[in-house]
Design a protein around this nucleic acid. Structure first.
Lengths: 244, 244
DNA sequence: CGCGTAATTGATATCAATCAAGATGAGTGG
DNA sequence: CCACTCATCTTGATTGATATCAATTACGCG
């Protein structure tokens, strides 16, 4: 049976049957490779396929008139991308590879078919969507109502947690693989100010940095400073009836 | 056949069969009334039901440690609420009535059953979710990367468009029914600064105000100033196979 | 009429942006 | 192996947008 990154992700939430896993793997068999910096879909491009990130790291962002950029989300293996294809004919956002990546693609009609054949997957995918939505509202609240330092701290915590999901060996030390400018574009700050906030976090003994590597020295205080909540860890799909 | 606000909403996107409409109306038959200011669900309350707003206006928000508030969304008739119940046992946000309201409620298991029995509804509800998600990312970009004036303008445009969806008679003049403090909590600004921004928009001839009533005097310039996009108007579910 | 909430306005403070220069470091071509 | 280049990071000085503080004023409502 072919391996499915997306099934692994769903499998963290519910127990999947072999039949369900097989059905999900159909979402990934059309593979495509991208180099670092390559764009999978640009804002306003025609859109009818969805993608699953299988290897590497990507991000999605929008550009404003004045050239400023807002990064909407960093994407890791198992993440479904371009779900907006379900509602729109053109993409509302740009998706770019931050490393070499492998993505699987499938037509939106294939997803509709999957939902029809495996209704339990429909509920599970919707639940997964809700986790993403709540994470997004957390970020909205962070940008709207918290300090620059808190936003940077929250982003570091979030990236570490998401990396750890793909590699449980990761503890307090990790390599986000993004620039300070990207941290700024994700948190609504300038690169210069991100630099100062990182320095402050460092001086306060909350983090350490070396090259592109970050170490969380006091996770508890960091979580408190950032008002950070790991929504994925809180998820609970116990209410969903087991598969037959 | 009982009337369903949610079916009306979905019906804007796809043509529903009478059978589908009947199934959707099951999501609303358990009615509940709330007075202005009443709280439907508080942050961290146990959660196992979903709701559909049938009449009136609500909002959802989160509170931070320091008492600051971030309003996540204003809710209008036809909006499904508390979908986070699909993924979490407790609510990540508070939902409060801004006027007298009527809501319908149903258990999350009922939704799972509906998705199983009517797979086309599963795709349509997911598409509707995507519209909401993209609107949320628009707001994220606005708060992260645009000026106070642009954010206030965008909120006014959005509220007008959403009110108009419920009442096509609404043109350029409308009554949002929210305070300047609430505008601030939705846009990440203080009430004082919202007041100044409204005044500026007024002085520039973009809007007029009278009591709680707002009039858009130059919608085109306002849309430009706000970089506003009406995602709901752009939605297109043409790819979804018609019902049999 | 009186009370409480919301709106308004001015003065001042603060956080983060902008502007300006280096410093560091990883490729790259000679 | 070195000189060069470009991106990234770093730091200081200054500006600017928005917050905060402090009164008033207007208004809906009992």
């Amino acid at each position: 049976m072919p391996h499915s990154c997306f099934a692994d992700r769903l499998g963290d939430l519910i127990t999947l049957t072999p039949v369900e896993r097989a059905a999900l793997s159909a979402l990934e068999d059309r593979e495509r490779r991208l180099r670092r910096g390559a764009i999978l879909i640009s804002e306003n491009d025609r859109l009818s396929e969805l993608y699953i990130l299988k290897q590497g790291m990507m991000m999605s962002y929008v550009l404003l008139h004045d050239g400023r950029r807002q990064i909407l989300r960093f994407l890791y293996p198992g993440d479904m991308m371009a779900m907006s294809a379900l509602a729109f004919g053109t993409s509302p956002e740009t998706m770019m590879a931050l490393t070499e990546v492998v993505v699987g693609s499938f037509d939106r009609v294939v997803l509709a078919k999957l939902l029809a054949d495996h209704p339990r997957m429909a509920s599970a995918i919707m639940a997964l969507d809700q986790i993403k939505r709540v994470s997004l509202t957390d970020r909205l609240a962070a940008i709207g109502r918290t300090s620059a330092k808190a936003r940077v701290a929250a982003l570091l915590l979030d990236i570490r947690n998401r990396l750890r999901r793909g590699d449980p060996a990761i503890a307090d030390s990790f390599h986000p693989g993004i620039t300070q400018e990207e941290i700024g574009d994700a948190t609504g700050l300038t690169a210069v100010h991100v630099n100062r906030m990182l320095r402050q976090l460092e001086e306060e003994g909350l983090i350490a940095r070396d090259g592109g590597r970050y170490t969380l020295l006091n996770e508890q205080r960091l979580v408190r400073a950032a008002s950070y909540v790991d929504r994925y860890a809180q998820a609970n799909l116990g209410w969903l009836p087991a598969a037959e």
